[in-house]
Design a protein around this nucleic acid. Structure first.
Length: 548
RNA sequence: GGCCCCGUCGUCUAGUGGACUAGGACGCAGCCCUCUCAAGGCUGAGAUCGCGGGUUCGAAUCCCGCCGGGGCUACCA
């Protein structure tokens, strides 16, 4: 049985196996690391996808009732084999994924998520992660931002196998160091007629655009320089000559996407300064670096046809799979942006004291879900659970409350020792012993570490002495006397206070409230901590000041 | 405007024609616990599944139309 349209010359992928694990209703066999595969009573066969086409064709003799897969498949590159056995195994090339940020500012939260999905996918498949710096924007790229990218990803615990800092066989990994490569490819396109020189000035282009705007027509480059290039001009850019027809591809999240080429104007691929544009450099590098799966934000979806045209014109294989992740939006339902959303900046979370593993957990759930009720995942669990076919299509709204909740969950799971260590930078003005002693009391009260400081503000600033009635003054005085001869630690302080309370028959609320007000103000950690965290003399002085 | 994508509680989502009186989580409300604040436990409110047509004995799930939202429309990435 040979499926209808497997790629020319591409050997079909044979997946033979017992029909035992078959989902009878659909005729699909789930194969780990591949996805759902069409099953036949005894034998399973899958077409090797054409380059970049991951959808599984329905075999001519499919089981009755079989339908096309709800989601397209991620099929492995290279020869794939699955042998008859109760346990199905698959031999295939290792996937290669890439993260390609541009060093034009702080690290974007969306980049962090894209990196995360890349890493989760690669780790689960035994693939490699490539970090490439897309610094072709001379005006905005700054070397110091590159370090911010490294730091940000490292902070999250997301590492890469190849990159500008660690090297690798496909380098260099900065686009600014690959200019010769792009030049070479541009020449090829020029020679084959797939691209042409454009001498138009920015002013002329602006005029064209304005004219289109005025006539309320969609703007596309006029191809003036293709038809009738001006003479005597020296400066030029290079444009791709968009071929006729349509471009189709399969996105693993969205399925088949089809775009009429006529709706795309000839894009510039080499700027007049000789540098490539993103749309040119990116696909060339993806091909040269043998990237198999491209994860990126949905905002790149409209770029994809252009990039595929370039690949086609160059005779390169398309990446095996494209995965466009839903954009992350703010409360206003707009894409997170520097201007309107302070929460885009990855560094913010580090500064406020979110635990990187908690942020990773939250980000994983923003646009993906495991299909179970599990909300808290270790990194290893995420690697195991992550499945591209469960990535959402609709954009995801960033939810600060849920992030805080997840972060709180992680904080509470820390040991006292660990929490104290992590807290130290956020309480740098406090003695180390104080931080260590405070950790247990803080644990259940912190949405993020940066809050510790305000919870312990009374250590630095004494409260205004409270107004107490005579009975309360007596309580505070008695407490102070009792505390004078007690070991200064939460445990003994608590015992002493409880003893006093029982002796006098005072309720906790009545005794503790005036003490708390005298020592810390309205809200503070449990009273024995509140007291013991303060130096004994200071605590007693505050009690004396309130009640004599 | 054009092209593309998307549309289930406020939010993240489960759901792939009957088990859906639409499930979970965050948030919200109430109660319990309690020395304040938290944490934790319990209970609850909250979704005419964007709208309108169809197909079907039966639709959140399939089809068509509409509406709404978003992304892109740079010699930015």
């Amino acid at each position: 049985m040979v499926p209808a349209d497997h790629g020319q010359g591409e050997p079909p992928l044979h997946v033979a196996g017992r029909a035992q694990p078959v989902d009878e209703d659909h005729g699909w066999l789930p194969i780990p690391a591949i996805g759902m595969v069409q099953i036949h009573p005894i034998e399973v066969e899958v077409a090797r996808p054409k380059l970049g086409h991951g959808r599984l064709p329905l075999p001519p003799d499919a089981l009755p009732g079989a339908t096309s897969p709800a989601r397209p498949l991620a099929l492995p590159p290279g020869p794939s084999l699955c042998r008859t056995s109760l346990l199905c195994w698959v031999m295939r090339d290792r996937p290669r994924v890439r993260m390609a940020p541009s060093p034009t500012g702080y690290v974007h939260l969306g980049s962090a998520r894209t990196m995360l999905y890349n890493v989760l996918f690669a780790r689960a498949q035994g693939g490699r992660v490539v970090l490439r710096i897309d610094d072709t924007d001379l005006g905005r790229s700054e070397p110091e931002y590159e370090q911010a990218i490294f730091d940000g990803f490292h902070w999250l615990g997301l590492d890469w196998d190849e990159g500008p800092d660690v090297g690798g066989p496909h380098g260099p990994y900065r686009q600014s160091e690959r200019l010769d490569l792009y030049r070479e490819h541009a020449v090829r396109l020029l020679q084959s007629g797939a691209a042409y020189r454009c001498f138009c000035t920015p002013e002329e282009l602006a005029a064209e655009r304005a004219e289109a705007e005025r006539r309320r027509r969609p703007y596309r480059y006029s191809r003036r320089c293709l038809v009738d290039p001006p003479r005597y001009r020296q400066e030029f850019a290079v444009r791709l000559r968009v071929p006729e027809g349509e471009t189709t591809f399969t996105d693993l999240v969205r399925g088949e996407i089809r775009v009429e080429n006529a709706t795309i104007g000839d894009p510039v691929i080499v700027k007049s300064n000789g540098w490539p544009t993103y749309n040119f450099a990116s696909p060339v590098d993806d091909a040269l670096m043998e990237i198999t799966h491209v994860f990126r934000g949905e905002e790149h979806l409209p770029n994809t046809p252009v990039q595929l045209m370039i690949l086609d014109a160059l005779g390169y294989r398309r990446p095996q799979a494209l995965i466009h992740l839903p954009v992350i939006v703010g409360k206003d339902r707009k894409k997170l942006s520097k201007r309107h959303h302070p929460e885009v900046r990855l560094g913010l979370y580090q500064e406020l004291g979110f635990l990187p593993e908690a942020l990773v957990n939250y980000l994983a759930l923003l646009g993906w879900n495991p299909g179970t009720d599990q909300e808290i995942f270790s990194f290893e669990e995420l690697v195991r659970a992550f499945d591209v076919s469960r990535v959402q299509r609709a954009s995801a709204m960033f939810d600060w409350d849920k992030l805080e909740w997840i972060n709180g969950q992680y904080i509470r799971r820390l040991s006292d020792r660990e929490l104290a260590d992590r807290l130290r930078p956020y309480l740098a003005d406090l003695p180390e012993e104080t931080v260590t002693a405070a950790a247990p009391a803080l644990k259940e009260r912190l949405p993020y570490l940066g809050r510790a400081s305000e919870l312990l503000a009374y250590l630095r600033t004494p409260p205004a002495p409270p107004e107490l009635d005579p009975e309360q003054r007596e309580m505070v005085r008695a407490a102070r006397e009792r505390l004078e001869e007690v070991d200064w630690a939460p445990g003994p302080v608590e015992s002493a206070l409880e003893e006093l309370r029982r002796e006098r028959g005072w309720s906790r609320g009545r005794l503790y409230t005036p003490i708390r007000e005298a020592v810390a103000g309205r809200v503070s950690p449990p009273l024995h901590y509140t007291l013991a965290l303060l130096p004994r003399d200071e605590a007693l002085a505050r009690l004396r000041r309130a009640a004599g």
